[in-house]
Simulated assay, not measured.
Amino acid sequence: MRFAVFASGNGSNFEAIVRAVENKEISATLVCLFSDKKNAYVIERAKKKKIPYMVIEKEKQETKESYEKKIIEYLEEKSIDFIILAGYMKILGHVLLEKYPKKIINLHPSLLPSFPGKQGIHDAFYSKEKETGITIHLVDQGIDTGPIIFQHAISITRHETLSSLETRIHELEHRYYPIVIEKYIREVVLNDKKKSLN
Rank of each mutant, 00 (worst) to 15 (best):
L97D: 04
T167Q: 07
E182V: 01
F3L: 00
I181S: 00
H137R: 07
F34T: 06
G9S: 06
K70R: 05
P113F: 13
K118M: 14
K103V: 00
V18H: 00
S127W: 06
I134N: 07
V5L: 04
Y53R: 10
E129G: 13
L138A: 03
E98Y: 10
A4L: 04
L165A: 02
I136A: 12
I154P: 10
S163D: 14
L96K: 06
K24I: 05
Y100G: 09
G11A: 11
E57W: 05
H108I: 07
A40V: 08
N10I: 03
G87V: 01
E166F: 06
K102F: 14
D123K: 09
F14Y: 10
A20M: 12
I56D: 05
G87F: 06
R168D: 12
V18Y: 00
Y184N: 03
R19T: 11
G146Y: 01
I136T: 05
S196Q: 14
Y126G: 02
I71V: 15
P113L: 12
K37H: 12
Y184P: 05
E65Q: 12
E59G: 02
E57Y: 08
I91H: 03
P147A: 09
I136E: 08
A28S: 15
E173K: 01
M89W: 08
Y100D: 10
E131S: 15
K195C: 01
G11P: 11
E15T: 10
K49F: 01
P101E: 04
Q141Y: 04
S114Q: 04
Y67H: 09
D123S: 14
N198E: 14
N13Y: 08
N23H: 12
H170Q: 15
E73T: 14
R175L: 11
L96M: 14
E15S: 11
H108P: 09
Q119K: 15
F3S: 00
P52H: 06
L197C: 01
F34I: 06
Y126T: 12
